[in-house]
C-alpha cells in the first residue's frame, strides 16, 4: 500500500454480543448450547437508545448506526470533512423494498408509505449515519454479496491511499426478514444471524500523532471475481493479491480467519482456495471459522472476523477471507497493532 493504514476503532453488534470484547468472549468460549432459533435477530435493546429523530430509519440503518457509534467512540474524534464512510451490505435494503412493495400491491401505488420509500435505497443507512456523526468525506455503499463488508474495507483503504480522506468509517450490516429467509437456499440446520460491524481506518502517522490505540494494521487487500463453479481458484487469486500487496510470504501468516460457513460448497471452495494460495503452509497455519460460533452473518462476517483477528493478533499477521456467493472474493491481510 502507498500509505500505512491502521484500525483505530472497533464496533460490533450481534445477538448475544455487543461490543468487540463481548464478541471476542462469545467467540473464544464457543456456544454453550444450541441457539434459541436457527435465524437469530439482534435484540431491539441494542439500538433502543438511539435518538427519537431517527425514528424513520429502517432496521438496517439502526443496527449499522449502533455498530458505527461504538467504533467512533472507540477511535475518538476526527475531522468531519476528512472522515468518510463505506458501507457494505449483501442484501442491503431488500427487506425494506419488499415491505414497500407489499404495501402498494395490497393498497395501490398511490398509497405507498413515503417514510418506508426513503429507505428503499441502501445508502439511506449511510446517509443517516453520516448525519448523526457528521461524516462529510467520501461516501460509498456496496452490495457485492457476502463479501461486501470486506470490500467496503478495501474501498476505505483506497480512499485514504488516494489522499481523499484522513479516516474512513467502514461498516458492514445485514438484517434478516421472512422474505430473505424464504428466498435464500440455506442447507438444513444452518444457522444465520443478523449482525453489524464497524471499523475506523486511519492513516498510520495521524493515529500515532494523536496517540490513538492501533488495534491492527491493514497490510493488503485482494479482490477478484470469477465463475460460480470455480470460486476456489478465484479466492486463491484474491489471497495472493492481498499477500503481494502486504509483501509477505505464506509462512509469515500466523492465523487464518476463514469464511467457511458449514455449507458444503462454500467450505470446499474456502479450503481449496487456501491450499492453492498458501501451498504447504495451508496445512500448518491455524484456521478459525467464526461462523461456527456466530452463524452466517452474510456481508458482516468478514468484518467480524477482522475484529476477532485484531483481538487474536499480537505481532503476527493474519488473513481474513470472504466468498461473496455471487462470484466475488475478498482477502485482507492484517498485522498486530504494536508495530510502529
Amino acid at each position: 500500500m502507498s500509505r500505512r493504514i491502521v484500525i483505530s476503532g472497533l464496533g460490533a453488534v450481534c445477538p448475544r454480543a455487543t461490543g468487540p470484547t463481548a464478541l471476542w468472549e462469545r467467540f473464544s468460549q464457543g456456544d454453550a448450547g444450541p441457539p434459541s432459533s436457527l435465524a437469530e435477530r439482534i435484540p431491539d435493546a441494542a439500538f433502543a437508545k438511539q435518538s427519537a429523530q431517527l425514528r424513520h430509519m429502517d432496521r438496517l440503518g439502526r443496527i449499522a448506526l449502533a455498530a458505527t457509534t461504538l467504533a467512533i467512540e472507540d477511535a475518538g474524534p476526527g475531522n468531519p470533512l476528512q472522515t468518510g464512510i463505506a458501507f457494505g451490505s449483501g442484501y442491503g435494503c431488500l427487506p425494506t423494498n419488499a415491505e414497500y412493495l407489499e404495501g402498494i400491491l395490497e393498497r395501490g401505488g398511490r398509497y405507498g408509505n413515503p417514510v418506508v420509500f426513503q429507505n428503499t435505497v441502501t445508502n439511506a443507512a449511510t446517509g443517516y449515519i453520516s448525519m448523526v456523526h457528521d461524516l462529510r468525506g467520501p461516501t460509498a455503499t456496496l452490495c457485492s454479496g457476502h463479501s461486501a463488508g470486506l470490500e467496503a474495507l478495501r474501498f476505505g483503504c483506497q480512499q485514504i491511499e488516494e489522499g481523499q480522506a484522513e479516516r474512513m468509517v467502514v461498516v458492514g450490516a445485514d438484517t434478516l426478514s421472512p422474505m430473505l429467509l424464504a428466498g435464500i437456499a440455506l442447507p438444513e440446520g444452518m444457522r444465520v444471524s443478523e449482525a453489524a460491524c464497524a471499523l475506523v481506518l486511519e492513516e498510520h502517522t495521524r493515529a500515532l500523532t494523536r496517540g490513538a490505540h492501533r488495534h491492527a494494521e491493514v497490510l493488503g487487500t485482494g479482490h477478484r471475481g470469477g465463475s460460480l463453479t470455480n470460486q476456489a481458484h478465484t479466492l486463491a487469486r484474491a489471497v495472493r493479491d492481498a499477500m503481494h500487496m502486504a509483501r509477505i510470504e505464506p509462512e509469515q501468516l500466523g492465523a487464518v480467519f476463514s469464511c467457511a460457513s458449514g455449507r458444503g460448497d462454500f467450505d470446499g471452495w474456502a479450503q481449496r482456495g487456501l491450499h492453492e494460495a498458501l501451498g504447504a503452509h495451508a496445512a500448518k497455519v491455524p484456521v478459525s471459522c467464526p461462523k461456527d460460533v456466530l452463524g452466517e452473518t452474510f456481508s458482516t462476517a468478514g468484518m467480524l472476523a477482522v475484529v476477532l483477528a485484531t483481538r487474536a493478533l499480537d505481532k503476527g499477521c493474519a488473513l481474513v477471507t470472504a466468498l461473496g456467493g455471487e462470484g466475488s472474493t475478498l482477502a485482507v491481510v492484517l498485522r498486530g497493532g504494536a508495530h510502529d
Binding site: 442491503g92 445508502n123 456496496l142 457485492s144 478465484t234 455471487e326
Partner: peptide
C-alpha cells in the same frame, strides 16, 4: 435474480470476465 449483485454477476458470466467483481448501490 433479486440480490443487487445479480446484474454484475450476469455481465461477468456472459462475457467470461475474471477480474474484480463489484456492485454499488448508491441511488
Amino acid at each position: 435474480e433479486v440480490p443487487f449483485s445479480s446484474i454484475a454477476r450476469n455481465v461477468a458470466d456472459q462475457f467470461g470476465l475474471g477480474g474484480i467483481l463489484s456492485t454499488v448501490t448508491m441511488a
